[in-house]
Amino acid sequence: TSEVNPQMLQDLQAAGFDEDMVIQALQKTNNRSIEAAIEFISKM
């Protein structure tokens, strides 16, 4: 599995997102940004 940015993971979990969804979103967006991860999650 590709690495996820631990700070982004922590921030998104703090915002109430599920850890598994956050990890998948960060991997799919290559840790580009929190906004990109949220957009990915919203389309899941």
Rank of each mutant, 00 (worst) to 15 (best):
Arg32Ala: 15
Gln24Asp: 13
Ile38Arg: 13
Phe40Lys: 08
Ala25Asn: 02
Asp18Thr: 08
Asp11Ser: 13
Lys28Ser: 12
Asn31Met: 03
Met44Val: 14
Ser42Gly: 13
Gln27Cys: 06
Arg32Trp: 03
Ile41Asp: 11
Lys43Gly: 12
Thr29Cys: 05
Ile34Arg: 13
Ile41Ser: 08
Met21Phe: 06
Ser2Glu: 13
Pro6Leu: 10
Asp18Arg: 07
Ala37Gln: 04
Ile41Lys: 07
Ala15Met: 15
Ala36Met: 06
Ala15Lys: 12
Asn30Lys: 13
Gln27Glu: 12
Ile38His: 08
Asp20Val: 07
Ser2Tyr: 07
Lys28Leu: 05
Ala36Gln: 06
Asp20Ile: 05
Val22Lys: 03
Ile34Asn: 10
Ser42His: 15
Met21Glu: 14
Ile23Trp: 05
Thr29Arg: 01
Met21Lys: 12
Met8Val: 03
Phe17His: 10
Met21Gly: 05
Asn31Ser: 14
Phe40Thr: 09
Arg32Thr: 13
Pro6Gly: 12
Lys43Tyr: 08
Met44Arg: 12
Glu19Asp: 09
Ser2Thr: 15
Gln7Val: 09
Asn30Thr: 03
Ile34Gly: 06
Phe17Met: 05
Ile34Glu: 11
Gln24Met: 13
Met21Tyr: 05
Leu12Thr: 02
Asn5Pro: 02
Ile41Pro: 07
Ala15Leu: 13
Gln24Trp: 11
Gly16Thr: 01
Lys43Gln: 15
Lys43Val: 10
Gln10Tyr: 06
Ile41Gln: 06
Asp11Leu: 09
Glu35Gln: 10
Ser2Ala: 11
Thr1Glu: 14
Ile23Met: 12
Leu12Gln: 02
Asn30Pro: 03
Lys28Val: 09
Glu35Tyr: 05
Glu19Asn: 07
Ala15Thr: 04
Glu39Cys: 05
Ala14Gln: 10
Asn5Tyr: 00
Arg32Asp: 07
Asn31Gly: 09
Glu3Phe: 08
Ile23His: 06
Met21Arg: 06
Phe17Glu: 06
Thr1Trp: 08
Phe17Ala: 04
Asp18Trp: 00
Phe17Gly: 04
Leu9Met: 08
Glu3Met: 07
Thr1Ile: 11
Phe17Trp: 08
Ser2Lys: 14
Gly16Ser: 00
Ala14Trp: 01
Asp11Thr: 12
Asp20Trp: 06
Asp18Met: 02
Asn5Ile: 01
Ala25Thr: 01
Val4Phe: 05
Asn30Arg: 11
Leu26Gly: 05
Glu3Tyr: 08
Gln7Thr: 11
Val4His: 06
Lys28Asp: 07
Asn30Cys: 07
